[in-house]
Design a protein around this nucleic acid. Structure first.
Length: 972
RNA sequence: GCGGAUAUGGUGGAACUGGUAGACACAACAGACUUAAAAUCUGUUGGGCUUUAUGCCCGUGCCGGUUCGAUUCCGGCUAUCCGCACCA
């Protein structure tokens, strides 16, 4: 080994100094974020809130894929901090819920224990990577200090109703339709008769003519309960006996299994807490315009909300009652030949009895992806067509979904493929309404049709291969619909709607695919509901605020009751804790309950369900603004400063694409409710969302097909191909590209990689892999490139010939340095975190080759680089004599970010590219100030140019100035 | 089926508003240093042609279009990935 080195080699040194700085930063709590309520807070500075998705504390710790996004937000937040912003970048843990609980069950330990352990482990891993998180803002969603506020916010939803008719303009100037308000307002309006009921029991202001019935005094609380944003409802739920709990629609996969654990899910009616997210469907849809999110996520949310403009149409039954259907194609109304209702529909239950019941159970157990023949049964009932007056049979069809629209459809077999198939199967007539195009007729005509296709279609549309779902003219001569004859169908649609409206047999209506959010889980590890039920009356009461938190009881048996039996009933683990469930309390003047043993106390029971794991993550980002506040979920001052005056409170939110609808939709919903109630000041939670890509990994298998631990694999290159061998047996292994995970034996711990190459090199390398949103496979070998880069920077800094004088630097290296600052700064702001490394490599290479590189230039490089390599930068400022931190600055993290001087980036000589007919033919240098004429003259002297013009006439000369070169286009 | 995204050398990728395609790296090859190897340094590296040049042709998934000029814009395909999928 070389002993006369002045400084140790970079890698060797990094092993020691990285550990030193880790300890030092933790001891100093260097990244403590001051809040507006703190003494030394500087409110004059601009703010940036940069967050990663709330991680759950997995028992397996972080693998190499996890830190990608975390490193990115760390680089960005460090850059903003150096630029003089107050930066909020923190990370807590979403520690309640299924993942944590399943892990506890598998390891046969209490979730409180495993959670604490996993959090400690991951926190250590995060610190290892040098992230600038604030340790004082590292809360867990399963701590009572935190979930007290989750319960408090749930009660806000419980205590609110949605006033659809309220149109208002918010403080940012956005026009908003509908608003959540306290139920106390509603109570007053109902008492005063300001709001009344219609025949369906819906409520609205009395100026609507259909709302005439004043709600009787003794029914008011019942009406209010039905209109709360959190309601207890009997609903068809996704029951997952394998997990022992019900699940939200968003947690069930397309093939009818649980997203967690992959157990089968069945439909079952149960009384559950439901959050009425559908009230916000329009705003959740429209407000996607207000924020800067990836197009894909926006589209997924739009599709999930799924608004659909159509009409409600009433068919009149023999007893005079109305059977409503929803349709998006009122223009096809004259072609209705049957009405089909879902097996769960009241009419089906009433008239099809056992047959419908059987269908319900068949449909419920039917595989989600089974699109084969549908079942149907005739109810024996008929209804009257609203326009033609024809007698229409009512069928029960299991292709009709009970949860969408009215749970009933009008059957137009000629123009809807599902109705077409149903009509064929049950021999129902098919009446065409719209003339198909000639091409369609040719394509779909029955085999061997010889007569005129138009005539054949009119006579027997059912003989064609499919229903016609396109546009066209209304066929003339339809009985009862003569007035629409020959109209284009889109026009007829409007006219038919008008007519229905006039007859009071229909109205235009918008429906949504979005369903209300099922909010109860029959699990232990979650937030208990802050409500109790009166044992005597069964009435629901919210607890008084000062009763919060409702602590999750300590139990030894926290296991859910799971089963393979789809008919098993849910049993809640909390239901077993009888002395927790049974309480005594008094009803206060607010109509809430206070738990007490006072002599006049009544008997109550607690709700034994818990909230789903999404509850805690619906508002955690707000808690970072004021993480240790005992008096409020967030203080007004903190919220207003950090959220700022924009549509979304969080400036940058980085995480994987897998939460496109779950967390990101739920959090938007809660945020909007809080916004309506004046608890937060922005209409949206997340201004800019960024989905980082995945790190995939290759797995290796031996000849028996067993996975081989990556540590035992040696990769080589043979004939340009990558091959893998077993390190011990020498056996050639097959390479499976794919996802990283424990079962593939290819999980690589980021600390191990950091130990091998230095944390700074790992951070750089992960950013250098490619654009932040691209998915790339993990390869460890190429990291030597970044390792070499850091080594050369380390050597550069330690050179003893650095020019520390005040002498001006030469213009060319000045230019390179300022160009580098500009390019690195702009790229980081644009979240292009791979290209700054290349740019800095170019600068480092150039400086290394100079004779006496200016120390000032080297220092600029180190400051820019410090956001990627905080350890090395800190060590340089601590140990290299010519690098010193200014008075009062504790760390490189607080050094000012270098600024570029536009004048210094200018070139003195321009490269001129000559293109002839668009092809580059010559290039030469000219002084930057050269005129177009001078450039042309010089260009025409070039041999290559003369050769390619070849005596032809010059028709056009085009000058295109670029930043550092000019293009002269010659057209001949 | 519907919706979204992606496609550039052996590999990861760069090219910012239509103007030098392949920056920066990895790998590979050659050379220097070394007894040797590692490390380090230097050079070559999209394909082809010839007259070896300040040369020519081809080349950014495929076909076509707009333009003096297209990786970039437009139309039509193909492949891969992701999401949704009885939504009336």
């Amino acid at each position: 080994m070389d002993t006369d080195k002045k400084a140790p080699e970079y890698l060797e040194a990094a092993k020691i100094f990285e550990e030193k700085w880790r300890k030092n930063w933790e001891k100093e709590n260097l990244f403590k974020t001051l809040s507006p309520t703190d003494k030394n807070f500087d409110a004059a500075k601009p703010k940036k809130v940069i967050l990663d998705f709330f991680p759950y504390p997995s028992g397996y710790g972080l693998h190499i894929g996890h830190p990608l996004g975390y490193i990115a937000t760390d680089v960005i937040s460090r850059t903003y901090r150096m630029m003089g912003y107050n930066v909020l970048h923190s990370m807590g843990f979403d520690s309640f819920g299924l993942p944590a609980e399943q892990y506890a069950i598998q390891t046969n330990r209490h979730p409180r224990e495993t959670t604490a352990e996993n959090v400690a482990n991951i926190t250590r891993q995060l610190k290892f990577l040098g992230f600038d998180h604030d340790d004082d803002a590292r809360f867990l969603s399963s701590e009572p200090e935190y979930y007290k506020w989750t319960q408090w916010l749930f009660l806000k939803l419980y205590d609110s109703y949605f006033d659809e008719g309220e149109n208002w303009t918010d403080s940012l100037g956005n026009k908003v339709k509908g608003r959540a308000k306290p139920v106390a307002d509603l109570r007053k309006k109902l008492k005063d008769g300001e709001w009344r009921q219609n025949v369906l029991g819906e409520i609205a202001p009395k100026d609507d003519k259909k709302f005439t019935k004043i709600v009787p005094e003794d029914k008011i609380e019942e009406v209010i309960d039905a209109n709360r944003l959190a309601v207890l409802k009997n609903v068809d739920v996704n029951w997952c006996p394998g997990l022992g709990t019900v699940l939200a629609n968003e947690e069930v996969t397309a093939d009818g299994r649980s997203e967690r654990g992959n157990f089968p899910v069945y439909r079952k009616p149960l009384k559950q807490w439901v959050l009425r997210i559908t009230c916000y469907a329009d705003r959740l849809y429209d407000d996607l315009k207000l924020i800067d999110w990836p197009r894909g996520v926006v589209e997924i949310q739009r599709e999930w909300i799924g608004p659909s403009q159509g009409a409600l149409v009433s068919f009149i039954a023999e007893d005079g009652s109305k059977l409503n259907v929803f349709t998006t194609r009122p223009d096809t109304l004259p072609g209705v030949t049957f009405v089909a209702v879902a097996p769960e529909h009241p009419l089906a239950v009433k008239y099809a009895g056992e047959a419908a019941k059987k269908m319900v159970s068949l449909a419920r157990n039917r595989a989600y992806d089974d699109k084969s023949a549908h079942n149907g049964v005739f109810t024996g009932q008929y209804v009257m067509h609203p326009i033609t007056g024809a007698k229409i049979p009512v069928w029960v069809g299991d292709y009709v979904l009970s949860g969408y629209g009215e749970g009933a459809v009008m059957g137009v077999p000629a123009h809807d493929q599902r109705d077409f198939e149903f009509a064929h199967r049950f021999d129902i007539s098919i009446v065409p309404v719209i003339e198909p195009s000639q091409e369609w007729l040719k394509e779909n005509a029955p085999e061997g049709a010889s007569e005129d296709l138009n005539a054949l279609y009119l006579r027997d549309a059912g003989s064609f291969k499919a229903s016609y779902e396109g546009d066209g003219k209304i066929i003339a001569g339809l009985a009862g619909a003569e007035e629409f004859a020959s109209l284009p169908n889109r026009e007829a649609l409007k006219k038919i709607c008008e007519k229905l409206e006039a007859l009071d047999k229909g109205s235009t209506k918008k429906t949504y695919r979005l369903r209300d959010w099922l909010f109860s889980r029959q699990r232990y590890w979650g937030e208990p509901f802050p409500v109790v039920y009166d044992v005597e009356t069964g009435k629901t009461y919210a607890l008084e605020e000062d009763q919060l938190p409702v602590l999750l009881p300590e139990v030894t048996d926290f296991r859910p009751v799971t089963s393979d039996d789809k008919d098993a009933d849910p049993v809640t683990p909390l239901g077993r804790v009888t002395d927790w469930v049974k309480v005594k309390g008094i009803i206060t003047e607010n109509g809430k309950v206070k738990i007490t043993d006072a002599p006049n106390a009544k008997d109550f029971v607690r709700d034994t369900n818990t909230m789903p794991n999404w509850a805690g993550s619906c508002w955690y980002y707000l808690r970072y603004f004021d993480p240790n506040n005992d008096n409020a979920f967030v203080s007004k001052e903190a919220e207003q400063y950090w959220a700022g005056k924009q549509n979304g409170a969080i400036d940058l939110y980085v995480g994987g694409a897998e939460h496109a609808v779950l967390h990101l939709l739920y959090a938007r919903f809660w945020h909007k409710v809080f916004y309506d109630l004046g608890l937060v000041s922005t209409p949206e939670p997340f201004q800019k969302l960024f989905n980082q890509g995945m790190i995939t990994a290759d797995a290796f298998r031996d000849s028996r097909g067993f996975y081989v631990d990556v540590d035992l694999v040696e990769e080589k290159e043979e004939n340009g191909k990558r091959v893998a061998y077993h390190k011990e047996t020498g056996e050639k292994l097959s390479i499976d590209p794919g996802k990283m995970g424990k079962r593939y034996k290819n999980g690589i711990s980021p600390e191990d990689a950091a130990m091998r190459h230095s944390t700074d090199a790992l951070r750089c390398y992960m950013m250098f892999l490619g654009p932040l949103d691209s998915t790339s496979p993990w390869r460890e070998a190429p990291i030597v490139g970044t390792e070499r880069f850091l080594t050369s920077v380390w050597k550069l800094v330690h050179r003893d010939d650095l020019d520390t004088s005040d002498a001006p630097a030469d213009a060319e290296s000045e230019r390179l340095v300022h160009k580098t600052i500009e390019s690195v700064t702009k790229d980081i702001m644009a979240l292009h975190l791979n290209t700054p490394i290349s740019t800095m490599m170019i600068l480092a290479n150039a400086l290394s080759q100079q004779k006496n590189p200016k120390k000032e230039h080297v220092e600029i490089l180190i400051r820019l680089l410090s956001v990627y390599t905080p350890f090395m930068a800190e060590e340089i400022y601590d140990t290299v004599p010519s690098f010193t931190l200014p008075e009062g600055i504790k760390s490189v993290a607080f050094l000012p970010w270098p600024k570029w001087d536009e004048a210094k980036t200018a070139v003195t000589e321009m490269k001129i590219i000559v293109q002839i007919n668009g092809k580059k033919r010559a290039e030469f240098m000219m002084p930057a100030g050269a005129s177009d004429k001078e450039i042309e003259d010089e260009a025409l002297k070039q041999d290559a140019v003369i050769r390619h013009i070849d005596g032809k006439e010059i028709r056009r000369l085009i000058h295109i100035p670029q930043k550092e070169w000019k293009v002269l286009g010659i057209v001949v």
